[in-house]
Design a protein around this nucleic acid. Sequence first.
DNA 1: GTGACCACCTGGCCGC
DNA 2: TGCGGCCAGGTGGTCA
Length: 274
Amino acid sequence: MPELPEVETVKESLKLRLAKKKIVDVNILYDNIIAYPDKEEFLLQIKNQTINDVKRRGKFLLFDLNDYYLLSHLRMEGKYFFKTKDDEILKHEHIIFDLDDGEELRYHDTRKFGKMYLIKKEDINSIGPLKDLGLEPWDKNLTSGYLREKYAKKKLPIKSVLLDQSIIVGIGNIYADEILFLCKINPLKEAQLITDKECELIIKYTKEVLERAIKKGGTTIRTYSSVDGVHGLFQEELLVHGKDKGNCPECKEKIIKNRVGGRGTYYCPHCQKG
DNA sequence: GTGACCACCTGGCCGC
DNA sequence: TGCGGCCAGGTGGTCA
């Protein structure tokens, strides 16, 4: 499942192969992937736009076009592949970008959860999903004071609040479990009870975990792979997520699995008492 | 404003 | 073996 490190890996792969290529045409095989504007407007506006760069904001890929940003959220299982016109269109390939060099960039999404937005550059901070995003993990404004302010009055479990993209972007279910384990914070603890010291630990380990995951090419759980079909290696370093049949790497007590905010949550009840 | 719940989807897995 | 049901999970919408 793509979280920030996986999106970063995909971005780097796309960037190398897409720079300065022009989108000649787009074939939309499943309309619901296009979230904004409607299908007809999307097709009209994107034609003949050149891809100047590929960037990332939170878990969104940003294709920097001449007049627009094409935002792509991979959600659970979105992937991009480069193909040629002669390649058979697979069952789960839903959006096909025809490029001016004859290649095709195909968006593949088994569960059809992914979304795309085509937003005019001047509207990027007023229309679309980017306007509501919080700070990047490496933003200098991400301080314990910022988190304390955001967490104040929040009675939700800290695990749920870590997933809130309007506070810190890029943390998904896997990394939230890993971050909380390293911080020794119980995922069920109310966010408003998180101390300054714990906020500092959350910031420290969020950066550390995501940086390590980016270096490893992300985490491959079930079906995620990058543009080049490369599987992330960070799953080999996961400490608690998905380890409910194993023991805590520190105290050797059994890792337990719970549901927190509807999400499968793995933690060590012995180490994570705080 | 906040929080709980659901829909969106499909494939893998498990129990019967 | 085949079938039904549950689970995985990011996000947005709805409702209390």
